[in-house]
Structures are given as structure tokens and as C-alpha cells.
């Protein structure tokens, strides 16, 4: 069983929902990333999503675009991101790590080399934003050969056929994009997400995470009420950006938002159970 699947099973047994923070690797400085990953786990993260910086992040809003630009000033390549995961694994062999990014850096490294290197470093899943199921077969093959979970994005306009396809090709969990738009936009409509999740669950047994537009403890708790996982990106990256001039404080203070979300999600879950 993959580390991601094991984590979801363990969470289910404990009646807990997964909280998945996203940070861009190397933002605002490469030295911050590994300590920040540990701090996020301490604040209550169950899985970590580590963004691979890309020069042209087409699906991202201004907050994550700026994070990519900050990281790229330090030439944070895919190889260096994988090295960060390797360093993280020295102290944490339990928390799953998902790499999230765009296809081109993986194309340049080569699918097989990437999958092998990522696996050896302790990566668990790979989410490639600009790789829909139709184009994914070669990469999925290489990832699965290394027992890495390919994680697919599912959108409000993905039909049942596509959801089934993602379910067959994918592993770990399915990432539902809560609205049509870029990361960080303020367009979350909880009811429409709830409705779509019911449709998705009719097509797959895979855990379903929800991301895009979850910005505070209240929205995290309301989404966690019916999803298996909540992904938080721009809201956290914005905290990091606000502290970019005081990098010594990032590790201590940026995870506060994750701790608040953790608390709200757990309280709501306990309240529903009782």
C-alpha cells in the first residue's frame, strides 16, 4: 500500500479528515522549505503538497505565480525540489509528499529518470496540472512502475466518463478543483462542491480532496464536512509572501493558518460524530 493510501486509511480509522497544505518549493528561499515542511506537519498537516516552480504557471493565480518567481530567482529546479524531499525524509518517513507542478520540467528530466529519482528520494505522488488523462499514459506508466501515485485534477465540468478514467489511471486520491478558475480566486460555492462530490463518489472509491479557494478555518471546515481532504494553497502561500522580508519568522508563523484550520476541521468532525 502506498504511503498516501495508508495515510487515508489511518485517518478514516481515526475519523479524521486530511489537511493538505501546498507550498512552492524554494519560496521565498530554498533554505526555508524543509524546515517549513516539518513545521506544517507539526501544525496538523497529514499530506504535503510541494510545488515545483515553473516559469509559466498557467493554471495559477497571482499568489502562486509570484511564489514561482521568488523560487526561480534561486534557480530551484525539479532536481533541487526532489533533493528537498530527500532531506525532509531524514526526519519524517511517515507524512506523504506529493509533487505538484507542470509537465515541462518532467519532460526535460525524462519520465523514467524522474520517476526513479523521485521514488528514491521519498516522493509519494505526482500531480501534473497540464496533463489530462488523454495525454498521461506514458507518464502514468513510469510513475506506477516506481509505485508513485499519479494524482489527477477533476473539475466542475468533468463528466462521469472522465472521472472514471481518472479513477482508473490515478492513485492516492482524486483532487477536485472546486470552481472554474485559477488557484486562489475567491469563488468557492460550498453547495455546488457538495453536489459535485456526490457525483464523483458515484464513479470512484478513491478518496476525494478539494482544493482551490479554501482560504480560512471556516471554509476548510465546511468543505471537510463532506470531502476526505482539504487542500490549502494560496492562503498559505500568501502568509509566506507577507513574511518574505522576515524569512526567519516564516517557519514559526506561516503554519499558524494550518493549525487554525486543523482545529476547525477536527471540532466540526467531532461535533458531527457526537
Amino acid at each position: 500500500m502506498s504511503r498516501i493510501a495508508a495515510q487515508f486509511e489511518s485517518l478514516r480509522e481515526r475519523g479524521r479528515k486530511a489537511l493538505i497544505p501546498y507550498i512552492t518549493a524554494g519560496d521565498p528561499h530554498p533554505e526555508v522549505t524543509v524546515p517549513l515542511m516539518h513545521a506544517l506537519v507539526e501544525a496538523g498537516a497529514d499530506i504535503l503538497e510541494l510545488g515545483v516552480p515553473f516559469s509559466d504557471p498557467m493554471a495559477d493565480g497571482p499568489v502562486i505565480q509570484a511564489a514561482c518567481e521568488r523560487a526561480l530567482k534561486h534557480h530551484v529546479s525539479l532536481t533541487r525540489v526532489i533533493d528537498m524531499v530527500r532531506a525532509f525524509r531524514e526526519r519524517d518517513q511517515y507524512t506523504p509528499v506529493v509533487l505538484m507542478g507542470y509537465l515541462n520540467p518532467i519532460e526535460v528530466m525524462g519520465y523514467e529518470t524522474f520517476a526513479q529519482t523521485a521514488r528514491e528520494a521519498g516522493v509519494d505522488g505526482v500531480l501534473t496540472v497540464d496533463l489530462p488523462p488523454e495525454e498521461s499514459h506514458d507518464l502514468v506508466h513510469c510513475l506506477k512502475a516506481q509505485k508513485l501515485d499519479p494524482i489527477f485534477l477533476c473539475a466542475p465540468n468533468s463528466d462521469a466518463d472522465r472521472i472514471r478514467q481518472m479513477s482508473e489511471l490515478g492513485g492516492g486520491f482524486l483532487y477536485y478543483v472546486s470552481f472554474k478558475g485559477v488557484t486562489g480566486a475567491n469563488r468557492l460555492d460550498v453547495q455546488s462542491v457538495r453536489d459535485k462530490l456526490a457525483q464523483i463518489r458515484a464513479e470512484t472509491d478513491m478518496p476525494v480532496g478539494v482544493g482551490f479557494g479554501i482560504r480560512d478555518a471556516a471554509s476548510a471546515a465546511s468543505i471537510a464536512a463532506f470531502s476526505d481532504a482539504v487542500v490549502v494553497g494560496s492562503a498559505l502561500v500568501k502568509r509566506i509572501a507577507d513574511l518574505a522580508e522576515r524569512p526567519d519568522q516564516i517557519v514559526a508563523r506561516a503554519p499558524e493558518i494550518i493549525a487554525e484550520m486543523r482545529k476547525a476541521i477536527d471540532q466540526a468532525t467531532v461535533a458531527r460524530a457526537s
Partner: peptide, 20 residues
Amino acid sequence: ANGHFGPYGGCFVAETLMQP
């Protein structure tokens, strides 16, 4: 049929754009 010219072309976009 999928927009490939040999190894080139294709449809490498975020899922939300696949339906449009």
C-alpha cells in the same frame, strides 16, 4: 484525432479546459 502531429501537438491543459 487527438491533435497529434507525430510526437507533437496534443492537448496539455488543465482539466477545466478539456470540456470547452
